[in-house]
Nucleic acid binder design. Structure first.
Length: 811
DNA sequence: TAGTACTCGATTTTT
DNA sequence: TCGAGTACTA
């Protein structure tokens, strides 16, 4: 794409070391605030940038890179910028190429996993992988573990495959191979055995899972001095986005790349690592993120400079006041206070509803109101803690005819038909990929049953070979069917030699019988469409990613050794253009990946968008987690109830509670202009009505920034209802989206059914003969089955059967 | 081998 | 409640 000339005059030849210093001020640096400017122009050396929400973090990151290049402090090849998501990486590349007339392809900008993939492709021999190794996604990994359990008679009751995959991923993220795992009990012993078997299986099949990408490339750097030295020398500037989300392994990986290099017999500090992050937005502890990496980074890298970006360009101050006040309740923060030059704006609106249904109705009414005031629907977001909450809201939006889009769910490359197609393609590349083999050997059905496959797997295990190779040992009808399948794959492989990607996929779709199968399926129309879309995706992968363009086969060492001490003489000069993302080059042979292999890698590393209708102007529904990094004019946060937000599973310890608070902090800071926070007295969850107390987070917000739309703590009889909200018996109901009317006019504390006869209410203080005084947190069930969750200061929180427990109401 | 009945689980998720 | 995944039957 032609670079946009946003910074006319800024363009000198880059990388040649001739660009003047930033004095006269470069246009790049205009419009930066002092903090941002300081961050962008940091002198070489390690630094931490604490970037608050909406403080222009991405801008700082990209401008920093542009500035480094423009002033000749770095060449494109010397830059390594790493992110967590493909989206973030893409945005960085897009902004950079808009800033500078430069080929950004020479830079290593990508996700941790994407960059690891590059490293492993380049040095696959050193790490013992075939050049065509493929990547298992989470689904593949699970089915691989299941298969392994079946084969080795692992008791799936005691060791659920899902847990085993967590265990394996957890070990890898801690940098542990099976032999490194401390075994204290037989349980762990067994898990480690499975881990070991799983590793062997992956190795045999030539596949790696996500965690393996990280671990294997970490080991590559750790164990190969020449390789490590090369990359350390090459990447003079390392920039890490969302540093608070890094796990142990990612941090160790960074250390390998940034580590000090011996020069003239002494350790010399090298290059610079800029870590950008926000400890207050760390919400991924559950998947291994370690905020502590920020402190470790400062200590271990001897960070001299920490810059805080606290000026927020997103929200009005009422919203920021809420965010600041809330997060101040967390301990051990690095400390940061968002400020804005915008005025207070509107107060943050707070709503209490009797039921989740009423909450959803209220939201929809407000949304319709906003839309009438010309707020684009895509600028309205409804955030919630857990996915289950979206249902009521969806049904109400549907009834009201308001277009909406739900984030999450199946992504394009995760769809069953796409996975099937990819499995065929993978078998073309690597017939020993047993996971793919099993996926499609009998899909579409070709008379190969479970029994047959069991026999085949036994045979393969006995011979220590892949399923593909074991087919020849099978006899009879089953053997014939299997042979036919193998022949199909082999013929397809032959027949697609020399074809382009589009041709290969098209031929595969026909020959495999997938098209035929879905054409005969009355539900198959969508799936056929998706398969068509797969061809398009491949096409645009080839053109947009520029696959096959400027692929540079690098000169080699005479021995074919991967790297030497002298990068420049080996064609590894950082100024040379390097392979584009799809063109990972084998450092031994100079070979690039085949288009098909590259596309398969792309599919595994980037699962694609979820769902279609992305273009429509629709209200955005998503979990708080999914909202990170986004912003909207108007934001609704629903379900602020104890047990839901903060979630009950996270309430038991301080760390969990603090993460919930950070989650709320993230949610609040998504809003630019208007923020609504709401909770409901009751909520239908898993078919049961739960009675919840208002979230403690309400008490942590500054009263003066809030506007209570419903009287605080009021009984609902007092509440003058919005007549529209109360009486919308929607004519378009039906299709299961009925309004089970929960009118505001009635005192609906127990909204459905009669009041339970125990006389308890959430919030009441009760007395128990054994536990003493306690506060009612929640009530569930009715009649004899009614239970109450009660917090006793001295005995903790307990669930008591109201039919049994002797309780008296104190207040 | 496909279709149906039953069990189980149920925050958050990118790569 | 509801959905996915598994086990059982025709």
């Amino acid at each position: 794409m032609p670079p946009q000339d946003l910074f006319a005059g800024a363009s000198a030849p880059f990388g040649a070391g001739a660009a003047p210093a930033a004095d006269p001020p470069s246009p790049l640096l205009q419009h930066l605030n002092p903090e941002q400017l300081a961050a962008v122009t940091l002198p070489a050396g390690h630094a931490l940038i604490l970037a608050g929400a909406g403080s222009g973090k991405t801008r700082v990151l990209t401008t920093r890179i542009a500035w480094l290049l423009q002033t000749g402090q770095a060449s494109p090849g010397g830059i390594l910028a790493v992110t967590f998501t493909n989206k973030a990486a893409k945005e960085m590349v897009a902004r950079l190429s808009a800033m500078l007339p430069i080929n950004v392809r020479g830079m290593w900008i990508g996700t941790f996993h994407g960059l690891c993939n590059r490293l492993l492709r380049a040095h696959h021999k050193l790490v013992g992988l075939p050049s065509t190794f493929q990547i298992l996604d989470t689904q593949d990994q699970l089915s691989a573990v299941k298969r392994l359990c079946k084969q080795h008679g692992v008791d799936e009751e005691r060791f659920p495959p899902k847990q085993l995959t967590w265990f394996i991923a957890g070990c890898k993220e801690e940098g542990m191979r099976p032999q490194d795992v401390p075994v204290r009990d037989p349980e762990t012993q067994k898990k480690v055995e499975v881990y070991q078997l799983y590793e062997q299986q992956c190795q045999r099949e030539g596949v790696v899972d996500f965690a393996e990408l990280m671990l294997r490339s970490y080991e590559l750097l750790r164990d190969n001095d020449a390789v490590r030295a090369h990359y350390q020398r090459r990447f003079s500037h390392i920039l890490v986005d969302e540093f608070q989300d890094t796990n142990r392994l990612q941090y160790a990986w960074l250390k390998q790349l940034a580590g000090d290099v011996e020069e003239g017999g002494r350790l010399a500090p090298r290059g610079s690592v800029i870590a950008v992050g926000d400890d207050d937005q760390s919400i991924y502890a559950f998947r291994g993120a370690r905020v502590g990496n920020m402190q470790d980074f400062m200590r271990e890298f001897g960070v001299q400079r920490t810059i805080k970006l606290e000026e927020n360009y997103r929200s009005f101050s009422n919203i920021l006041d809420c965010a600041n006040a809330l997060i101040s309740h967390n301990q051990g923060r690095l400390g940061k206070n968002l400020r804005t030059q915008q005025g207070p704006g509107e107060p943050v609106r707070v709503q209490e509803s009797p039921t989740d249904l009423a909450e959803a109705q209220w939201m929809v009414e407000e949304i319709k109101h906003l839309v009438r005031e010309d707020v684009p629907r895509r600028e309205i977001a409804v955030l919630y803690r857990s996915n289950a909450q979206s249902r009521v809201i969806e049904s109400q939006l549907f009834n009201a005819g308001v277009p909406y889009r739900v984030y999450g769910g199946l992504r394009f490359f995760e769809r069953a038909e796409i996975k099937h197609a990819l499995a065929y393609l993978r078998l073309l590349e690597n017939p020993h990929d047993d996971t793919s083999f099993l996926r499609v050997v009998n899909f579409p059905p070709r008379g190969i049953g479970a029994r047959t496959l069991e026999q085949l797997q036994d045979a393969a295990r006995g011979a220590g070979c892949s399923l593909h190779d074991a087919v020849s040992t099978m006899t009879g009808r089953a053997g014939a069917n299997l042979s036919a399948f193998v022949a199909l794959i082999d013929v397809l492989r032959e027949g697609t030699q020399g074809q382009n990607l589009r041709g290969i996929i098209g031929q595969m779709l026909q020959a495999s019988g997938l098209v035929e199968h879905y054409r005969n399926d009355k539900e198959g129309a969508d799936r056929l469409e998706n398969l068509d879309e797969l061809v398009n995706a491949a096409e645009s992968f080839v053109t947009q990613e520029g696959f096959g363009r400027d692929a540079v086969a690098l000169p080699l060492d005479e021995q074919g050794a991967p790297l030497t001490q002298s990068p420049a003489s080996q064609g590894l000069d950082p100024n040379l253009p390097l392979a584009a993302p799809g063109e990972m080059i084998d450092q031994d042979t100079g070979e690039t990946l085949s288009p098909l292999a590259a596309f398969l890698t792309h599919a595994a590393l980037e699962a694609g968008d979820n769902q279609a209708q992305a273009g429509q102007d629709a209200v955005q529904l998503m979990t708080v987690h999914a909202s990170k990094g986004l912003e909207f004019d108007c934001v609704f946060i629903g379900g602020l109830e104890e047990g839901l937000f903060p979630h009950e599973n996270a309430m038991s310890d301080a760390a969990g509670l603090e993460e919930e608070r950070r989650l709320m902090y993230v949610a609040i800071t998504r809003a630019r202009k208007r923020l609504y926070i709401s909770h409901s007295q009751t909520r239908l969850l898993h078919g049961q009505t739960r009675y919840n107390v208002r979230s403690r987070f309400f008490d942590e917000l500054p009263e003066e920034a809030l506007k209570w739309l419903t009287p605080r703590n009021a009984g609902f009889g007092l509440f003058a209802p919005d007549p529209i909200a109360a009486h919308r018996g929607n004519a378009r109901a039906g299709r299961g989206f009925d309004m089970k009317s929960a009118s505001f006019a009635n005192p609906p504390v127990p909204p459905r059914k009669a009041a339970p006869g125990h006389g308890l209410r959430v919030g009441l203080t009760v007395f128990h003969t054994k536990f003493g005084e306690g506060k009612v947190l929640a009530i569930e069930g009715a009649g004899d089955d009614a239970r109450a969750q009660i917090h006793f200061p001295r005995h903790g929180t307990k669930w008591l059967a109201l039919g049994v427990a002797k309780l008296t109401v104190v207040e």
